[in-house]
């Protein structure tokens, strides 16, 4: 597992994933499963920690074998999770803030319901551009 890790997931208000992207390219299946597992496991930690701070940015909420999960919770209880291997916290913070803007625009689309998956290609493209620009 020499390749770097950077997976971004948006979890909807009813604990279902509405958007997932692997920002460092495709992985082996085994690794993918591990990443999913770590991300899902971190949801409990997010639930606990979101009440300890008034900030939507939660910093690193969970760790597993050198994999870190950083979280952001919107007021509507949608969670942004980023799985990474110890990257710059500020960069991820900036990334979340920008993605939040994009996310709001998606939610304002009258054809989108809060529980449906985000399938917009434009959103996908912008998230990838942001990740490249801010996190690298």
């Amino acid at each position: 597992m020499a390749t770097s890790t950077l997976t971004f997931v948006i979890v909807g208000q009813e604990d279902h994933p509405i958007y997932e992207v692997d920002l460092t390219g495709p992985k082996e299946q085994q690794t993918q499963y591990l990443h999913q597992f770590v991300l899902h496991a971190s949801l409990d930690a997010v639930d606990e920690q979101m009440w300890l701070s008034k900030e939507p940015h939660l910093k690193i909420v969970d760790r597993f074998n050198g994999l870190n999960v950083t979280a952001f919770v919107t007021p509507g209880n949608t969670r942004f999770l980023m799985l990474h291997d110890g990257r710059n916290d500020d960069a991820i913070r900036a990334f979340f803030t920008e993605v939040y803007e994009l996310y709001i625009r998606i939610m304002l689309n009258p054809f989108h319901s809060p529980t449906s998956r985000i399938t917009s290609r434009e959103f996908d493209r912008k998230v990838k551009v942001l990740a490249k620009r801010l996190i690298g």
């Binding site: 625009r105 304002l108 689309n109 009258p110 054809f111 989108h112 399938t119 917009s120 434009e122």
Partner: peptide, 9 residues
């Protein structure tokens, strides 16, 4: 503003 037409529409 904000609107993106889904494929079925």
């Amino acid at each position: 503003d904000f609107v993106e037409l889904p494929d079925e529409y």
